[in-house]
Design a protein around this nucleic acid. Structure first.
Lengths: 182, 182
DNA sequence: CAAATCATGTAATGTGTTACATGATTCG
DNA sequence: CGAATCATGTAACACATTACATGATTTG
């Protein structure tokens, strides 16, 4: 999917500038784009050309003009249309599994060092997510159902990292046991 | 990471052609690249220029010449070097979660249809993986430890889809219950 | 007889990241 | 007084996918 629908989604809450959107993308890992200017500002231009958003320019002295984008009826229709397109399976890009695939070239100590570091990083990420999602709770959820959906989105992410943590621990245990057997 | 290390990894098992590699990438979801020519053939040229592989050309009548690539000592060293670089966290690109984020714009029926379809797709994918991984077992694992690692890589992937399945079922249940309460 | 397999490669396009550029104002 | 915030944008590059192109041989 392209970033455009995520932008339309945010604008369906309230009008925003590119800069506002950038911050939203940065704080959230659900909206997995890195929050880089290039994509956001380009997408906004295209959404505007397509008539999915309107633009209001606010001049400021000594700062670039703020450009406030508002979603149009057409844009909302486009968003709704996308919402009922068939769900995509998540992309799994898991470079660490690729490393593991050839990790038999490593000594047991080197391998366990990698695993320990992965465990550490997953754990850190999991803790960070919990904090971030506390904060994200005060985003303007409109209905009880929306609040519930957002909570389940959080839960999906947390569960993923919990799963990785359990998996890597099991793997380390397994390797220790095997070694002692041989 | 780039596809180059995955290629070096495969070549560390046995010399192969681009076409062989293409099939490997296609059958496996761990090696998440789509198995498209463009990347593989380009990467092979670069690996060759860098001295990480050697190339043996076998002429065939009425078919393009087979180019058999073999990893060099330098290439193996490069691979080993990469294996001990710090593990990356997996990228999570989960467009369905983005759809859900704005799914309050849908009717309950539309939303449940999307969820049902996602459940279906995850389930199908999970079953397919199980079959594929039966087949992949006869790849040339060299040691007991390597066999164990590959099994845990499989387990990581299966566990992921099991997790998604449990999650989406819980979400559907939750939405049903909420509706009946209001 | 149509489709898959073998085997190479190119072209076009889409998606995504990092770094660069400007420059005033506010906060620690 | 250095760093962060506000606010726009461009340039260069990396990574990925789909489709195009060729053309003989084997399989169902």
């Amino acid at each position: 999917m392209s970033i455009k629908y995520a932008i339309l989604g945010f604008l369906s809450w309230t009008p925003m500038t590119g800069y506002d959107l950038k911050k939203r993308f940065e704080e959230s890992s659900t909206f997995y784009w890195s929050g880089n200017n290039n994509q956001i500002y380009k997408a906004l231009v295209e959404l505007h050309q397509a008539g999915f958003v309107t633009k209001e320019v606010q001049q400021q002295e000594s700062l670039p003009a703020r450009k406030i984008y508002t979603v149009t009826a057409l844009g909302l229709a486009e968003l709704r249309q996308w919402l009922i397109t068939p769900p995509e399976l998540p992309q799994r890009r898991h470079p660490f599994l690729v490393q593991l695939a050839w990790a038999d070239l490593l000594t047991p100590a080197e391998l366990d060092k990698q695993l320990a570091q992965y465990e550490e990083e997953v754990d850190t990420k999991w803790r960070m997510l919990q904090v971030q999602q506390q904060r994200a709770t005060d985003w303007p959820q409109r209905t009880e159902r929306e609040r519930h959906l957002w909570q389940m989105i959080s839960e999906n992410e947390l569960a993923f990292y919990r799963g990785e943590l359990a998996w890597v621990r099991e793997l380390r245990d397994g390797l220790r046991t095997e070694k002692s057997h041989s």
